[in-house]
Amino acid sequence: MNPIIRFENVTKRFGALTVLDNFNFEVQRGEKVTLIGPSGSGKSTVLRILMTLEPFQDGHLELDGTSYHEPNGRGPFKASEKHLHKIRCSVGMVFQSFNLFPHMTVLRNVVEAPVAVLKMKRDEAESRAIELLRMVGLSDKKDQFPSQLSGGQQQRVAIARALAMRPRVLLFDEPTSALDPQLVGEVLGVIRDLAHEHDLTMLLVTHEMRFAREVSDRVCFFDKGRIVEQGDPERFFSNPQQPRTREFLSSILGDQEPVRESLRCAL
């Protein structure tokens, strides 16, 4: 079967800084992939390119068989607005800083895009939104404004909002990094439930190693815009091959004592 995401020799530069250099990466349909790696290694950039928030300069990127660049595409994205619109129909994203719309109620946040973009009827969109909010455990908050919610609740709304667009690929960029430690669990719980969705392809950037190990089919270690090592989580965490991976894991696991414990048990 064809991969749903295929980066082929993608090069991404910010001015003189080359963040991705001939980057190759594939994700299968329904696969749950975690990206880990040091700060500045290009993890967010990969997600942002997929979400069409950043253009890339060279190479080829496909989503479900559709190329991001058009043959005669113009502008930084080398594609028309219409083409980008079509690509975005299959992709959703959850941000580190939630980015809920502060002037809209929780319900309105979830309903906005299905009504505006998918042309769904408002009452239909609302009943679906309530369904999604129930799924993330927040149906009682539907008439609140984002500022009235905790960070963990806001992030769960953001997940419901992304799901309302029925994406086939869902991107998470450090969804729990902005949260107080005691709120991380509730968000991870929601993502864990989502990981059971068979058809949903998930790309997750996170520093929560135990969680990565638990939910993902594959872990990719990024360094300097390259995937240094990847593999199924059991093998990856218990027996990393590359020195760079070991170094990274020991540095990050130093901060996550329980994880180190659980890894030791696995060894």
Binding site: T52, L53, V91, M93, F95, N99, E112, A116, R161
Partner: peptide, 23 residues
């Protein structure tokens, strides 16, 4: 208006007009 608001609007596939009007 913070950049995150624009990015959320793009991620939700709102058009430019909808982004200005609604967000």
């Amino acid at each position: 208006v913070p950049r995150g608001q624009w990015e959320a609007a793009t991620a939700l596939n709102l058009s430019r007009l909808q982004t200005y009007r609604d967000i």
